[in-house]
Amino acid sequence: MGINLQKGQKISLDKEAGGGLSHIVMGVGWDAATGKTGMLGGLFGGGGGNIDLDASCLMFDEQGNQTDAVWFRQLRSRDGSIQHTGDNLTGEGEGDDEQIKVDLSAVPANVKSLVFTVNNYTGQDFSKVANAFCRIVNGANDSEIARYDLSCQGSHNAMVMAKLYRHNNEWKMHAIGETGKGRTFEELLPQIKPHL
């Protein structure tokens, strides 16, 4: 098992993985919270229904300019180094509901940081979401390097989860965990900028 990250914590991915990390997977999982609405609430659309959380990976250069984005409308970065496995509309099932695969060795040299966000496209706030997490997995052996619990109840429907960034020729991870509002990552960009 990997390290359980706290908000604001920074780790070296190479050190946690035992060195030589080239392929990682950012997995995101969630469930629809149960028992939050009575029968009348369900009848009148007071919650319930499917929850569609969307994981995105944004690429930024040294100057903090966005160079590309991988999300449900573009499942592959233009350079091919980042691949989204596809949109999960409900959170049904065990384990990761969405995955973003990153070939760290192929990320273009001008890209300094990768920022991972999660947005609730169906619009419910996180009080309707249970057991939400993101985790970094070593793509070479499927071992979990780090996990970050996102199950913070509240009126937000989006989160800036984490940033991977280059520092002294190695990749580090910063668990940001900043809540926000927005159905897509574009609405989070003003919140992301200070973290670049």
Rank of each mutant, 00 (worst) to 15 (best):
K101A: 04
D68A: 11
Q6L: 09
R76I: 07
V111I: 15
G64W: 12
E98H: 00
R73M: 12
A162P: 01
L75Y: 00
G64V: 14
Y148K: 00
L114H: 02
D149I: 06
K128I: 00
R166P: 03
F116R: 11
E92V: 08
G123A: 13
T85G: 04
M159N: 06
G182A: 12
D142E: 14
V107L: 02
N110D: 15
V28E: 04
Q124A: 10
G2W: 07
E186N: 02
S151K: 02
M161E: 00
D54C: 08
E16I: 09
N110P: 00
S22W: 02
G42L: 14
A109G: 05
G2D: 11
V160M: 14
P194Q: 06
V160F: 13
D14L: 04
A132G: 07
G45C: 12
V107I: 07
L58K: 07
E144I: 14
F133A: 02
A158G: 13
T179E: 10
Q83F: 06
A130L: 07
N138Y: 06
G35K: 08
G177D: 02
Y148S: 04
D97I: 03
L189F: 07
S77R: 02
T67M: 14
D142W: 07
K101P: 00
G42A: 14
M1E: 09
G42P: 00
T179M: 03
W71A: 09
H167R: 06
R76P: 02
F185I: 01
Q6G: 08
M173C: 11
V129P: 02
R183K: 15
D54S: 09
E178C: 11
C57A: 15
G45A: 07
L196S: 03
I3K: 14
D54R: 01
N131S: 12
G182V: 00
S81W: 06
E144K: 13
T37P: 00
E178R: 15
A109D: 15
G139W: 10
A130M: 08
F116E: 07
H167Y: 01
G154H: 09
E144S: 07
D125E: 06
E92D: 13
I11P: 12
D31W: 09
I145M: 12
A130N: 02
V137L: 10
G2T: 08
S113V: 05
S81E: 05
T117G: 12
M39S: 06
N50V: 01
T117Y: 12
I24K: 04
D149N: 15
K10S: 14
I136Q: 04
S77P: 01
I176R: 03
Q191K: 15
A33M: 04
G154T: 07
N157D: 14
Y148N: 00
Q6P: 00
L189A: 09
V102E: 13
S151M: 01
L89E: 04
M1W: 09
L43H: 04
D52Q: 10
S81D: 01
Y148F: 15
T179N: 09
T117L: 14
S22Y: 06
G93P: 06
F126V: 08
I24T: 13
S113F: 08
Y165E: 09
A158C: 10
K181R: 09
L43V: 11
K181Y: 14
V129G: 03
I145W: 12
D79S: 13
L75R: 00
H23E: 15
